[in-house]
Design a protein around this nucleic acid. Structure first.
Lengths: 181, 181
DNA sequence: TTGAAGAAAGGAATGTCATTCGGAGCAATC
DNA sequence: GATTGCTCCGAATGACATTCCTTTCTTCAA
């Protein structure tokens, strides 16, 4: 009979699924806000030395927790003041391949398949309403696209990449207390 | 009578709205994909020297074209496998202030006000469906929130930050050619 | 309990790169 | 035609990333 702990250890090794200790999460949290921090500064905030932080960051990158490091561009001042979310109803499954071709357009920032009364959800940022119109025209040019609903953004109050912190309280919400609503 | 060119020059100076030449856009494009590039590498790709690139990047940061540099975290492997878009119908204008308080939750990544059959649009990434439920509970706890519609993401095919490139063709789409559809 | 092995952290050294400085080319202005 | 301002490049400096090595702690086995 295999030793459960040893088996788990092996799995962790193979899947590289070590469960992120407090140091890791602190580092991730800081880097998700500002990746320009030096390892020394990062270390002093996390309570580690620079080489230790470096080692952890290297591991976080290798295991895919950190996807990459990017400069966040400002839409309006870089020529794309129009932001919209487009819901796409398409006929048939497996037709999503056509939509994925839109990834080539730099205006398309996100493509998700979603559950709900729609099939696909696109996040699109472009130069003008004219360009949005042109993009919708391309959408409707696809045979599988049945209908779209666009939600043009008027104001953006918050926009950021995934954060490291997790709000534990959300999972322990006592919904029964809301039953009286 | 004021000299138009001079006036424009002054405006550019004041608004710091210089129109981004090809070098700037190339640099922005590269940095939006990988901000870890050295200035030397960046320079060789753009056809400039390292100091020249450095100067431009500094200016792009100062003028707000580059909002910041961040590490892109992977949702699933950092403990947040659930992604959803939540449409919020709220009663009355100016009540958005309540919703903005949700910015404090690291699970809330985006908050937009949109035109369409809904008022607010949230992008939410959390640990579990239980957490999503807890977040919706918080939403409904706000007096102004009338209804919500959630679109749970099943698969994400593309997800990136704003890109520098602009597809000119989108703005020159001949919509009259689509009239026959 | 003791010994051995693995993992991880810290200190110091090295190499790379960011950053700065000075000079040159170029355009626009008076 | 001289001047001012801007941007580029090459070289020098300084900071920082990266590596190496030692130490410590934990874990597993005897």
């Amino acid at each position: 009979m295999p030793n459960p702990e040893k088996t788990e250890a092996v799995q962790n090794k193979c899947q590289e699924a070590r469960p992120l200790d407090a140091f890791d999460r602190k580092i991730l949290g800081e880097l998700a806000v500002d990746a320009g921090l030096s390892y020394a500064e990062l270390g002093s905030r996390a309570g580690l030395s620079a080489p230790a932080v470096h080692e952890r960051v290297k591991r976080l990158r290798a295991t895919g927790r950190i996807r990459g490091t990017v400069a966040v561009l400002d839409g309006p001042t870089t020529g794309k003041p129009f932001l919209a979310f487009v819901h796409v109803d398409s006929t048939g499954w497996g037709k999503t391949q056509e939509l994925l071709a839109l990834s080539e357009l730099p205006e398309v920032e996100e493509i998700h398949s979603v559950a709900g009364d729609t099939c696909m959800l696109l996040k699109v940022r472009c130069a003008s309403s004219r360009a949005l119109e042109g993009l919708l025209a391309r959408l409707y040019a696809l045979p599988s696209v049945k209908a779209t609903r666009s939600y043009v953004v008027l104001s953006t109050f918050l926009e950021r990449t995934p954060q490291a912190e997790i709000t534990e309280a959300l999972e322990s919400t006592d919904l029964s207390s809301l039953a009286s609503r």
